[in-house]
Amino acid sequence: MSNLKPLIKSLQQYLRIGDWLVALISLACVIWLFQTLWSHEQAAKVQIRLGDKIYGTYSLNQQRDIHIHGSTGEAIISIANGQARFAQSPCKNQYCIHQGWLTLAGQVAVCLPNQIALELLGENKPYDSLNY
């Protein structure tokens, strides 16, 4: 850590008050962006689970339909425009379809009868588990 002292000294030599101001404003900007965007992070990937296994993890940066054979029949998961959703499901109540498009990291859609779960993944997990 003692190696840092000369570094700081040399910084003080070259940086003027305006530079410090720029640095300070940038820092404030980063903190502000962090606070506003942290909880609502756009997701990068969707993880699909079938029963107790991870079926696959897919980039949201593509247009694709994924066909999966669940415990009661075939379901279709659609990926498009950075979002994912249940597009087709053999379940009776269609709650999973009604969930609609998932866009943000941490969002979850589950089809209990067919035992398929979607979870959007981002850089950070906004919570450890979802109380649905």
Partner: peptide, 10 residues
């Protein structure tokens, strides 16, 4: 940390 689900949104 536990997320609380919105009753009408995913």
């Amino acid at each position: 940390r536990v997320g609380i689900q919105h009753p009408r949104q995913p």
